[in-house]
Amino acid sequence: MQNESNQGTNQHESETPVDLNEETTETQETQAAATDTPSADAQVAEIKDKYLRLLADFENFRRRTAKEKIEFQQTAEEGVILAIIPVLDDFERALKSIEKAQDINSVKEGVQLIYHKLYKTLEQRGLKPMEAIGKEFNGETHEAITQIPAPTEDLKGKVVDEVEKGYSLKEKIIRFAKVIVGN
């Protein structure tokens, strides 16, 4: 028995104590290093693929919105042109009737009717004339062509005459009024 017990003791004595946690940690690190590389490459490939798809989607979106913008502008222009064509027809009829007309007042009245029809058509589309005469000069809405001596003291710094009427389209100025200012 002693032999057996010595053998058992010798066995335990000859073995060096091993920390199982160290072995497990080293094995895990080795496995992680081995698996991280393919995993990292896969992640990079996945991210690259997502990036390329996102870039392609953005390019498609940019092209589509540019195309829609051009189509919208063409459609808007078409609407205005279609609204003005009847006025053009009226002008053609007026020009034909001017050749035959013997009364200038009837021609004048016809031209005034056409003007009012055109004005109403544009007004329905959002066009508004700007009132300038007698108003204080404003560089944001007026373009001063020249200055003249003010006819009266109260017209100094104000618009005395309007060379070209200014217009706004739906609250946005599309043409500044060209004016003469009193000094």
Rank of each mutant, 00 (worst) to 15 (best):
I114P: 06
N10A: 08
Q28K: 10
L122H: 12
E71D: 00
S5H: 12
A45R: 12
A42R: 14
K100Q: 06
D49R: 04
R62M: 03
L122K: 15
F72K: 12
K69L: 10
E59M: 03
Q73Y: 15
K96M: 12
A33V: 06
N10V: 02
G110M: 14
V44E: 11
H116S: 05
I114N: 02
D49N: 00
G8P: 07
L113E: 11
N60M: 03
F61E: 01
L54A: 02
E22Q: 02
L122N: 06
N3V: 01
L52Q: 04
I84M: 02
I70D: 03
D49Q: 00
K120S: 02
H12L: 10
Q73E: 13
A34D: 07
L54Y: 03
S5N: 11
K69V: 02
Y115C: 01
L20Q: 12
E109N: 04
L88I: 06
N60V: 06
K50W: 14
T25Y: 03
E68R: 06
T30C: 03
S97I: 01
S5M: 11
S14H: 05
Y119H: 15
A76M: 11
L55N: 11
T37Q: 04
E22G: 00
T75W: 07
T30K: 13
A32M: 06
H12W: 09
E23D: 08
S5L: 13
N10F: 09
N21K: 08
R63Y: 08
A56I: 05
A56Y: 05
P86N: 09
Q31C: 00
A45G: 03
I104N: 05
Q31R: 13
A33Q: 08
I104D: 02
T24V: 13
V80I: 14
L54D: 00
N10D: 02
R62C: 01
E109F: 10
S39I: 09
E77Q: 15
R53D: 06
V111M: 05
S14Q: 03
I85P: 09
V44S: 08
E77T: 12
T37N: 01
D103T: 01
R93K: 13
R64E: 04
Y51H: 14
T75E: 00
N3D: 00
Q74G: 14
T24K: 14
A32S: 06
E15C: 02
S106Y: 06
V107N: 05
E29R: 15
L113K: 15
K117I: 01
T35S: 06
A32T: 07
L20S: 07
A40Y: 08
R93P: 00
Q112F: 11
L88R: 05
R63Q: 09
D57R: 12
K117R: 12
Q102E: 13
N60F: 12
E77I: 10
N6R: 15
Q74R: 15
P17R: 15
L122W: 14
R64F: 07
P86T: 06
E46S: 10
E123M: 09
S5Y: 13
A83L: 08
N21H: 04
Q11Y: 03
Q124M: 02
L55H: 14
D41V: 10
T65M: 11
L118C: 05
T35H: 11
K69D: 07
N60W: 07
I104T: 03
